[in-house]
Simulated scan of single mutants.
Amino acid sequence: MSRQRLIALLTAFAVALGLALLVPLASTASAAAGCVGAWSSSSVYTGGMSASYNSHNWQAKWWTQGETPGVAEVWADQGACGGGSTTPPSSGSFVVSEAQFNQMFPNRNSFYTYSGLTAALSAYPGFATTGSDTVKKQEAAAFLANVSHETGGLVYIVEQNTANYPHYCDATQPYGCPAGQSAYYGRGPIQLSWNFNYKAAGDALGIDLLHNPNLVQSDSAIAWKTGLWYWNTQSGPGTMTPHNAMVNGAGFGETIRSINGSIECNGGNPAQVQSRINAYQSFVSILGVPAGGNLSC
């Protein structure tokens, strides 16, 4: 008997006896104006139980564990919620105001919303909240400058060179490329690409991006979350995460190295490096803080 089937039977037995089973069950609170307890991939949910995910409340139709709300049909959408752990932080809590964001990206694609960005911030609460006020603004500027470079000023949602699309499937991975050979092309603010990156980002965020990579180009908050995932957790070809580079004083140049390494750094493409630096200097100016040292790589 499978573990999930065993847990289901034990859950039913415990309910019949009026006992509390020692498995991580979610809140049974009904959907309301506020967000109920946040969905957890490790929690067991039975029919009628609720959880919040991506600023919506969801109700389980039957027993489930590890099936993502909004992706698996077991979940019924109860509508947007306001309040609770998955509520986007107010715009005033982010060091970049909406007016400053619009100033940075005057020609941005409407997909890249400010509300999508602020909704994504809860995934990595240390981002732009660590260190002094100057460091917080420098980190936000550094992230947005690299994002600007990767997307042509938040214009492009997907990679423009379609000839590259079939190259991003590493079939040697044990899970392969279930969404298709050409499904894992660059998407979002840091152009998430390759099947293994979609899986890693999805696993970290609790979203099945391996099977549903199009979520990164159809849901603004998810797109921003993938950018923040890379920024806060991946060192790429560098030696540190971009987040650590900014909060520990290594400088903007090390964020470039962590994103594109020798392709741009060490003389690889000085024009591209300068483009990123120019954006960063413009953004820190908008935020009213100095750029700091070590701008190049």
Rank of each mutant, 00 (worst) to 15 (best):
A123V: 01
R187T: 03
E67L: 15
H56Q: 08
T68R: 06
Q217G: 08
N161D: 15
T11A: 12
N244H: 09
S30T: 13
Y112A: 00
T241D: 05
L117D: 01
E264M: 07
A250F: 11
I222T: 03
A99G: 08
W229D: 00
G251F: 02
A26L: 09
A141P: 04
A171V: 11
L21N: 08
G48F: 02
G267V: 08
L25R: 15
P242K: 03
W75T: 06
D77Y: 05
A51I: 10
L9V: 12
K225C: 07
E73W: 13
F127H: 05
A245R: 01
V95D: 06
Y184R: 03
N107C: 10
A142V: 00
Y114K: 02
R5E: 12
N54T: 10
H243S: 03
A99R: 13
Y45H: 04
N57V: 08
S182R: 13
A76V: 14
A99Y: 02
V284L: 07
V71S: 09
G293P: 09
A99Q: 12
S97W: 00
N161H: 11
S235H: 11
Q191H: 01
C265L: 08
N260H: 07
S262G: 11
A16F: 11
A201Y: 07
T226K: 02
W224Y: 10
S110E: 10
L17T: 13
